[in-house]
């Protein structure tokens, strides 16, 4: 049957040759806006090549690059050692940009709130169930918190946003780490799921007393209120591009670029943030495609990063950019 189908395909539709090259990538949805922006800009710089990027999910990006069905993959979470070991050749993580996940809520008058990690973890563990719980009230003196049930909202679909969020909760709460852990989708101990950023936002807006997490860009676009989070230096930080850049600058980034930047040590660093990666093989299969891919990546680091802020992403700090550029130069084709 396989052969029959294949033969039918080749026989039925003879390919029409064309001069323009198409390089395909797939994966994470979180960086899709900036990637499409880059590829659109780049198509004007180098007209001989088109970069096609489709947001099918981080897991999908990892799976597809392992199966070599795409020229590059993209993921919001670093690949596990187990998955990397399945790659046919050396597979590299190239970090591109970082973003923040904000904690949004729906309370009467939507006062500005401050939260720390353990309290947030306890809310999501179902241990803190009322808005006027002492754990919340003690951090928000002067705010009139209602005696209302907290409606916990989380993402129902697997997502990089959930990865960053649960990575953070695992980092600040040993209880969370032991009971739930970090992943693109986890076994949520409490609350209800919304599909996508839109689903979570809808739930928050419609349910009085709700709390949920969404990407910074989304919260800004939809004017949602979001909480200041206490970072590892004990300072409450408002999520913004600057405070994410700060987190990037102080995070420890290992040689293979598989790093976590939640709860970064910087004094001005926003704690719930994460990077996103492009996954490429060190040895490119197709020499012409490989060459174009490297050219593009170099462009992205020199010129592309400048577009990040306008789309609510944090660009990589100069020190990291340099290291990444060195790595890109080592790609062979």
């Amino acid at each position: 049957m396989k052969k029959l189908l294949i033969a039918a395909c080749i026989g039925l539709f003879a390919s029409v040759a064309s001069a323009q090259m198409l390089i395909n990538g797939a994966g994470a949805t979180f960086p899709q806006p900036i990637y499409t922006k880059w590829f659109d800009q780049y198509s004007k710089i180098d007209t001989s090549v088109r970069f096609n990027y489709q947001g099918i999910g981080s897991g999908g990006g990892q799976k597809q690059i392992l199966a070599e069905t795409v020229d590059f993959g993209a993921s919001d979470g670093p690949m596990s050692d187990e998955n990397i070991s399945k790659a046919p050749r050396t597979l590299w993580h190239i970090p591109t940009v970082a973003g923040a996940v904000v904690v949004s809520y729906n309370l009467p008058g939507n006062p500005a709130l401050k939260l720390d990690g353990p309290t947030l973890a306890n809310i999501y563990l179902g241990k803190v169930t009322k808005w006027n719980d002492a754990a919340i009230a003690s951090q928000n003196s002067g705010v009139n918190l209602p005696d209302q049930d907290i409606v916990v909202v989380h993402r129902s679909d697997g997502s990089g946003t959930s990865y960053i969020f649960t990575d953070y909760l695992s980092n600040v709460s040993s209880d969370w780490k032991a009971k739930v852990g970090k992943n693109t989708s986890v076994n949520w101990p409490a609350g209800l799921g919304g599909k996508g950023n839109a689903g979570v936002t809808g739930q928050i807006k419609q349910s009085p007393g709700a709390i949920g997490y969404v990407e910074l860009a989304y919260a800004k676009q939809n004017s949602l209120p979001y909480a200041d989070m206490k970072n590892s230096s004990g300072v409450y930080i408002t999520p913004s591009i600057d405070s994410v850049v700060e987190a990037l600058a102080t995070a420890t980034i290992p040689e293979d670029f598989r790093f976590s930047m939640v709860n970064a040590p910087g004094e001005k660093a926003y704690p719930i943030a994460g990077a996103t990666w492009i996954l490429v093989y060190q040895q490119q299969k197709d020499a012409t495609k490989g060459k174009k891919l490297v050219e593009f990546l170099k462009w992205a680091y020199v010129d592309g990063e400048k577009m990040a802020a306008s789309l609510d992403y944090a660009p990589l700090p100069a020190s990291v950019q340099e290291r990444v550029l060195k790595r890109i130069a080592q790609i062979t084709y």
Partner: peptide
């Protein structure tokens, strides 16, 4: 189509492309 045609931000020139 999600895992077969994939999608393409540009025009497709070959049927062997997304």
């Amino acid at each position: 189509l999600l895992f077969t045609a994939l999608g393409n931000n540009f025009w497709s020139h070959r049927l062997s492309e997304p």
